[in-house]
Design a protein around this nucleic acid. Sequence first.
DNA 1: TAGAGGATTGAT
DNA 2: TCAATCCTCTAC
Length: 196
Amino acid sequence: MKVLPQTFYWDKNVTRIAKNLLGKVLVTNIQGKKSRGIIVETEAYSYKERGCHAYNNKMTARNQIMFEKGGLAYVYLCYGIHHLFNVVTNGSGKAEAVLLRALQPVEGFAWMTHRMNTSSIKRITSGPGKLTKAMGIDRTFNGKDLITSEVCIEEGMKVNNKQIVTSARIGIDYAGPDAKLPWRFYLKDNEWISKV
DNA sequence: TAGAGGATTGAT
DNA sequence: TCAATCCTCTAC
């Protein structure tokens, strides 16, 4: 399977990338343990709106990766417990990213169930905090590039617009009116998307 | 330097 | 409905 080129992430329209990522395949290869999952749910974030860590171009120690050129991983800890995995997009200085919220596992079931401490593969990657754990992603992945490192994204299945459902993003009520932006995208009728 | 809160999850 | 749990940011 072909790895997406860095130019894929340089699109200036972050919501278009969020949609384009649906059907693509997230791959981790950690100490020889290969895991792969089709991306079935994403959310877009931009410095232009309040839901984003880098709102108003505010750079901090945590979010500085978002200001880099597209094609890097932005991983951070949420609620002190969960690692969330984002893909940095756009050019340098334009802080935008796509959060991966759910995967459909296709390879590495044994590693995933082991990491999740369960025997069932069901709903094992249906949520942003769960998919990082199942794939073995943690904060040490912050800033890694998505072309040559242990984590990358490959071309996957074709998705047409009719299969894509759009909705408001989850868990950012504090963002005021921006919380209502239709920037969450997922595959219609897919059983692997996160619980709402 | 202390205090508040968060792009979540799973158990109660 | 709520606790877990700790890093990050803000205010003092």
